[in-house]
Amino acid sequence: MQGVGPAVCLGNDIDTDVIIAGRYLRTKDRSVWAEHAFEDLDPTLAGRLSGAIIVAGKNMGCGSSREQAVVALREAGVVGVVAPSFARIFFRNAINVGLPAIEAEVVCTDGAHVAFDLDAGWVEVDGERYPARPLSEKMVAILRAGGLAPYWRSCR
């Protein structure tokens, strides 16, 4: 499982309220979440997410269990999220919707060229290679299937 894209750098403790605010939750229209992602942090950010790799600080995705946070990022076209640590529900949710969440400590500058290879266990930023914590076999299988729902269907 691999991915490449320009880096969008974020700080520590990015919470799910910042990723998608509570006021946008009451809809089934996923494009709304993508459009308003990170609105309270930086309203221009949503426009830069397509094809990008988010490189966040520690405790990425802390706060509520809202799955809309990871769906928003996936719908916005985010290729993967790299962080030294994730809030555990966000981490599970990301895998479950098919969004690669990669635990690695990297040095990030906005727009840097980021690449990752989950099977080999590394992340590269502008050619500099960093180790990534390996995922369990099952998590990789879920990611490969595109998320837990398609994985479930394929297992039946």
């Binding site: 269990s65 809202r66 799955e67 990871v70 529900i89 599970r92 949710n93 479950n96 919707v97 099952k138 998320g147 837990l148 729902a149 479930w152």
Partner: peptide
């Protein structure tokens, strides 16, 4: 402990989780 909605769906469907 808390879970996301897709994890919850798999739990409702199977009765179990990891």
């Amino acid at each position: 402990t808390g879970m996301g909605a897709t994890d919850m769906a798999a739990i409702w469907a199977s009765g179990a989780t990891w």
